[in-house]
Amino acid sequence: MLWNYKTPGILDELFDRTENVPITKEDIRSIIISKLRLKEGLTAIDIGCGSGSITVELALQTRAKVYAIDSDIDAINLTEKNLLKFGVLKDTVIIHGKAQDVLPTLPTVDVVVIGGTTGDTDRIVNLALSKLNKGGRLVLTSILIETIYNALKAMQDSSLQDIDITQVTIAKSKKTSSGTMMISRNPVIIFSGTK
């Protein structure tokens, strides 16, 4: 097994990656997983699955059905490759399409992660909430100011309880010829709430 730990935050280098498909980095992924409050048996939807790093973590943590959605066929192919690599392909349903079209066809689940809204934040949040069981957790991440604004409004206008907003800025070390320097990554805003 590639990741023989209960803790989230699988090392980025263990995932297959391509230049044109985004990955949620391990440090941010750990926080997202913690905000979901996962346990074995919970079902999940990962909207905007990208490389599949969150989908893999969800499948490993819950050992239950996970639905991964992305509109980019390269992301779908990469997600499938990573799920196979980590031995959790059987626990997932990978769906190529727009979340707006796919979500109405899915069953209700216990947790939903929104990693991308393609500019349709309000609609995707509302559709995600319609697929969330009572007591379920919704987590949305964004690096774009417009999405942050729209997500805040959509979540405040919803029936979500205990809405939490966290900004995370990570810096990672990099060796140079004269020592070690810290390289900052994009700040990420993480919204979470309970239905």
Rank of each mutant, 00 (worst) to 15 (best):
V88C: 13
K175R: 13
T62S: 03
S158Q: 03
S130V: 01
T117W: 02
L138W: 03
D91A: 10
F86L: 08
Q156L: 09
P107M: 14
D162S: 13
A154K: 00
I73H: 05
I76E: 05
I69V: 14
S130I: 01
K65E: 12
I165P: 01
K175F: 08
P104T: 10
A59N: 02
K153R: 13
I95K: 09
A154E: 02
A68V: 01
I145V: 15
P107F: 14
D162G: 07
V102L: 05
K81H: 12
I143D: 06
R123V: 15
R123I: 15
L129K: 03
P107Q: 15
Y67N: 00
T79Q: 13
I124Q: 00
S71F: 02
Q156K: 14
I94A: 04
Q100R: 11
L78S: 09
K134S: 14
M181I: 15
V139I: 12
A99Y: 02
I114E: 09
K98I: 04
D91I: 01
N126S: 12
L127N: 08
L103C: 06
V112E: 07
A171M: 14
G116N: 11
Q167H: 11
A171H: 12
N133P: 00
T147H: 10
K65F: 06
A64W: 04
S177F: 12
P104R: 10
S177H: 13
L129C: 03
E80C: 11
H96R: 04
Q161I: 06
G115S: 11
E80H: 10
I76F: 04
G135W: 10
S130A: 08
K90T: 06
V88I: 11
D162Y: 06
K98T: 08
T62V: 05
I73Q: 08
T62N: 02
A64K: 08
V168K: 10
Q100H: 04
G115L: 08
A151D: 03
